[in-house]
Write a protein that binds this DNA or RNA. Structure first.
Lengths: 231, 231
DNA sequence: TAGTGGTCTAGACCACATT
DNA sequence: ATGTGGTCTAGACCACTAA
């Protein structure tokens, strides 16, 4: 007796039919029972293949209505958000971290508004640099709420960046991330070794945990930085 | 008899234990058989929950070695890549498209190198604009290989952008996408209504199908544009 | 070699949305 | 009312890999 038909094979076959035009955009696919009979598998196997296709954004399923090929295939890129250190080391470069400045004080108004902090809250403000093979890679401008993370007051960020420290303290948090372009100000230009006004790639990230706002960070990358993905 | 324990409940319970610190980063979880016994479910149900947790980047599994909580939870953002028109309309704004220029000619050297086109290939070059409520939203600078997509030679891009046309012609393609910052050149500044040298957010996308390079596009967004995601 | 996850089966019941 | 997908079960065999 030959081996079973795998869900991967089923998926591949269906994929070929969709990409080949046998089932064009908008078309209704046969039901799981029919496909299972055609492929000679259990219905669960077809179901497993279909779940993958839904996740890949190629197909839409509704009870009773059946499975249809998406008219516009849903395109989504998965973007890995690694630690800077890992990102640099993955490029085969030597990573170096340096603390620029750090101090504790009252949260400025714009930050309280942005993070939704209550009045009178204290924050720790940290500026630091990440280098790749000695070249400026990323300038980090971070604010940590001391109400939410009191341990950050005394933490030592001279040898290790605040990001790695935070990930260890609070491994599971909710993040809102945004990407934009910004013109280098004097401080950024100095640290990143570029001209005033140069166009720089910027990431802003706000992290919360258990409904409490933890930290807001603005990461500015060296001139010419690109973030790349495939899908 | 009460209903079955669902895989969602199993997943939620495991998630709570991980986030609550009962199973700290690096810890070895009980085997599927043990968990199934504890929860009173079939092993397949635990397996289903675990597969979700792997996908969420919280857990790593290896045969024989078992399931471990990831030391550094894998963070990845899912970025939807919609059509500009849809992106604009989802913001409740009125979308307008305008063709700026279009012509057919030999592919310039930099483009042939970038796309990996053979020598002597012809391309169609299209410049166009996308507006939201009358305001400049995105400037599109696109090259389409006429070797790979001969129908693009005669296609009419006065009423509809080349992106929507391409998605209809070739719904299933492979894409490499990159994000960066750029300083506005004269043409971009004029079309986007900003100053020369302004920092602009830029997306570059290269699309292939069946191993053939189809199109390369450079999308430059209006000043202040942000791309946002949560994870 | 033994223990773990990965997958398939055959059957069942349920939830949901269309009719 | 009915047909579809969504899920669970109990059991089985397999693939991988750590010990």
């Amino acid at each position: 007796m030959a081996g079973h038909v795998t869900y991967r094979e089923v998926k591949a076959t269906i994929l070929d039919r969709i990409k080949g035009g046998a089932w064009p955009p908008g078309a209704l696919l046969p039901s799981e029972v029919e496909l299972a009979a055609e492929f000679g598998t259990a219905r669960a196997t077809v179901s497993r293949a279909m779940r993958d296709l839904v996740e890949d954004g190629l197909v839409e399923r509704k009870r009773k209505a059946g499975t249809r090929v998406r008219k516009m295939p849903l395109r989504q890129a998965r973007l890995d958000i690694p630690l800077v250190r890992v990102e640099v080391e993955d490029q085969g470069a030597v990573y170096r971290y340096a603390l620029v400045a750090s101090h504790v004080g009252a949260a400025p108004d714009w930050l309280r508004a942005r993070m939704g902090l209550p009045g009178g809250g204290e924050v720790r403000h940290i500026l630091c640099m990440h280098f790749a093979d000695g070249q400026p890679y990323q300038f980090e401008d971070r604010w940590i709420s001391l109400d939410s993370a009191p341990d950050a007051r005394a933490a030592d960020f001279t040898a290790e960046g605040p990001n790695e420290w935070l990930v260890r303290q609070v491994p599971y948090s909710n993040v809102e991330i945004s990407f934009s372009a910004t013109a280098a100000d004097a401080e950024q230009a100095q640290h990143l070794g570029c001209a005033l006004g140069d166009a720089l790639f910027r990431v802003e990230r706000q992290t919360s945990w258990d409904g409490r706002e933890l930290t807001f960070v603005r990461l500015t990358y060296h001139r010419g930085y690109r973030m790349t993905a495939r899908y």
